[in-house]
């Protein structure tokens, strides 16, 4: 994620480089590491603090499915999708910067395909 933010890969080319330090100003949460039980409740609270519409990317093996801690990690949540709904999963341990950009573009596609609910026309 650091590499994606820096000049070589440059997340700003996709208009996605506006990192925010608070969930109240963000619409996308990238879960970029191992989620344990202590952290899971905080992640859920952060997700609920985000304004709708909101999206979640699970980045890397740990966040998508527990990763190497799947079998013997007694405090590791086996995928962040058990806590919050996830839109895009990115594979890799750690994912390449290109993979994260691909995930972002997938999410943009997903958002573009979402039907917009229009107000019904007023009659009389």
């Amino acid at each position: 994620m650091m590499a994606v933010g820096c000049a070589h890969h440059d997340i700003d080319r996709f208009g996605a480089g506006a990192f925010r330090a608070t969930p109240r100003q963000s619409d996308l949460m990238i879960v970029a590491g191992t989620v344990n039980f202590k952290m899971a409740e905080r992640i859920k609270r952060l997700y609920e603090q985000m304004p709708s519409p909101k999206y979640v990317i699970a980045m890397g093996a740990c966040a998508t499915g527990g990763g190497p801690y799947y079998k013997f990690g007694y405090t590791v949540v086996k995928g962040v999708d058990r806590v919050v709904p996830v839109d895009v999963y990115i594979a890799g341990c750690p994912p390449r910067p290109e993979a994260l950009l691909e995930g972002l573009m997938k999410l943009q596609e997903k958002i573009q395909g979402t039907p917009v609910i229009r107000k019904p026309k007023r009659t009389a």
């Binding site: 039980f37 202590k38 899971a40 007694y74 405090t75 949540v77 806590v83």
Partner: peptide, 26 residues
């Protein structure tokens, strides 16, 4: 390191993993 309400001692050989914790399935 563990949450305050954790049950069991994980590094013991006879430890059994929890099936769920605070509603999160394991």
């Amino acid at each position: 390191l563990l949450p305050d309400d954790w049950i069991g001692f994980p590094m013991r050989k006879d430890y059994e993993f929890p099936r769920e914790y605070h509603g999160i399935s394991c």
